[in-house]
Design a protein around this nucleic acid. Structure first.
Lengths: 216, 216
DNA sequence: ACCTGAACACCGTTCAAGT
DNA sequence: ACCTGAACACCGTTCAAGT
């Protein structure tokens, strides 16, 4: 009679070894994104994520105080990436018109959200910093809004954008439009094929950008 | 010695009586909204809702197949109410310009979402009809989009709106902007005092509406 | 016909040990 | 120091009874 393996669920020791130097933290974040990506936010459980990595679910608490802290790490990572995408978009168009630069930010924003729906859901789903528990989340958001506002302000300065009610309000207008479009695409209320994403964004954000440019 | 009441948690029989004629259904929906309103979507559990109404948690299954079905009922109710608000808004301005009528729809949409955050979260949070399980949810959404699209189309017909890429795309532009603004307000990324809501909406949706009106 | 309670398979999190 | 397993208080949902 063959001896029954004592723990059929556990990963082999060599595989577990990989999680000794912060790899587990990374692995848990990736597992969370996978689970959310395939089954929605409620499909992510600490226990299932740990199970997938072949560790005891208690091991997660070594890297994260609790489930919400893990989600905050996912969100923070996402916000920095979104900020990077926006900066890259404007950086690539140093000589373009304000209209073109604002549209480029919109394309980058919507593209990031559409391509990273799991991140998007964590970033903009529950209000993780509601109780002020994760103030670090506000940093990249504030910087991203800064990018937008600066673009608007320099457009006004150059005489290409109407001053209107000020750069803050104009930036909020554009943020609303970008964010709404991203939301409707991620929740599949607007269906867009990947290769048509950029032109769809141009079409749908066009009125808002033109409205900011229009002299009234 | 006083006899210990056998079930301290249960509501008195007379109170329970109220739930015999469909009242329990209504009560569960209201309890769900309350719980979501105060503690977010994850604060709503069938067991807690039933507990608040003084009934066994199994009683909920008499009115709803499962938790998701109860949420779908909440969402459907919300979508019809949102549609009603939009219709009322345009109905009140029979002679106004297309620009004013579109802005009025935007105000109604954002106001509904801002005043009913629990509904909003259920309606636009998880994609309840993802698997085609609740097709009834699509009816009021489609009708609401119809209202928007018809406004745009009649504005184009009257020569007051640029034809652009067609009424569908124009309506999607406006929907994105409205929805994004509503989302940012509900998630408190934009803070607005109640009495300034209408003027804030006008300011922030103004560029989009003007962009639709502009002749290019 | 309607409501209930025990039971099942899950959670997140805490506590107390194991190496 | 690090990981684990049992335990606790919750879930949603199923099953089998109670009136």
């Amino acid at each position: 009679m063959v001896a029954k393996p004592p723990k059929p669920k556990a990963a082999p020791a060599r595989e577990r070894e990989r999680y000794h130097h912060g790899e587990l933290r990374r692995g848990l974040i990736d597992a969370a994104l996978e689970l959310i990506g395939s089954g929605g936010p409620e499909a992510f459980t600490l226990r299932e994520a740990a199970r997938r990595l072949g560790v005891n679910h208690r091991a997660a608490y070594r890297h994260f105080a609790d489930k919400e802290t893990l989600l905050a790490a996912v969100a923070e990572q996402g916000f920095w990436a979104l900020l990077g995408a926006a900066r890259e978009a404007v950086g690539a168009l140093p000589e373009a018109t304000p209209e073109a630069r604002l549209l480029a930010i919109g394309r980058a924003y919507v593209r990031f959200c559409a391509m990273n729906p799991a991140h998007f859901r964590v970033m903009f789903g529950a209000r993780l910093n509601e109780g002020g528990r994760f103030p670090a989340l506000e940093v990249p958001i504030a910087e991203a809004f800064e990018v937008l506002q600066r673009e608007v302000a320099s457009g006004v300065e150059a005489g290409a954008l109407a001053a209107g009610t000020g750069p803050r309000m104009a930036a909020l207008s554009l943020w609303s439009a970008m964010h709404g479009l991203a939301t409707l695409i991620v929740t599949r209320r607007i269906a867009v094929r990947k290769e048509r994403l950029a032109s769809t964004v141009d079409t749908l954000l066009g009125p808002t950008v033109r409205g900011l440019v229009a002299k009234r």
